[in-house]
């Protein structure tokens, strides 16, 4: 049975006919929309490499059936930069070497962006570590990841202060 669904992916509305209800958002993005920035590390919600934002919240896209997310607004790593202008989190990941092999990186960055929007961790390194613990990094780039988030958070705090001043 075919199901028609529509999603907003990185700002663009996409309508699909889904021929199989088993397709996850992760496999839809990677294998059908060829948006391969989002990675599959475990396919079982245990590594975080597939993290995307759905309606503004970070989730594991391997555990989300596409059909159940009809109408959702999806942001993936491909939708984060504005052309050549990197998102501050992306730039901070480069500056602080928040990755080595880079495979977990799209998930880490999406998770960091989601975490900053959740506003639970602030600029507390310990809370950042805890709130980023859903993203495994086998190379062990955690120290750089925390420093990158701290820098991006400091930048965000500064610009919100400027706005309110």
């Amino acid at each position: 049975m075919n199901h028609s669904i529509s999603l907003t992916v990185n700002g663009a509305r996409r309508d699909f006919v889904l021929d199989d209800p088993r397709v996850t958002l992760l496999d839809l993005l990677r294998e059908r929309l060829h948006l391969t920035g989002t990675k599959k590390g475990c396919d079982r919600g245990q590594c975080g490499a597939c993290t995307i934002l759905v309606d503004g919240k970070r989730i594991n896209s391997c555990f989300a059936l596409a059909i159940s997310h009809d109408g959702a607004d999806i942001l993936t790593i491909e939708g984060v930069a504005r052309g050549d202008q990197l998102h501050p989190v992306q730039a901070a990941f480069i500056a602080h070497d928040g990755f080595q092999c880079g495979f977990c990186t799209p998930g880490q960055i999406m998770s960091a962006i989601g975490m900053m929007q959740e506003a639970q961790a602030g600029n507390d390194p310990e809370r950042i570590r805890e709130c980023m613990s859903g993203n495994l990094c086998r190379c062990g780039a955690y120290a750089g990841i925390v420093d990158a988030v701290l820098e991006a958070q400091a930048g965000a705090d500064e610009s919100s202060q400027r706005r309110s001043a």
């Binding site: 990677r30 060829h34 391969t36 599959k40 993936t76 990197l86 495979f103 799209p106």
Partner: peptide, 26 residues
Amino acid sequence: TRRDGVLKVKGQATYAADNHPPGMLF
């Protein structure tokens, strides 16, 4: 800093499973 950094943070670094030649099967 890493010279492949921009590709990696943008999700544009192509790992093997990211390839999809026409007519590909799984």
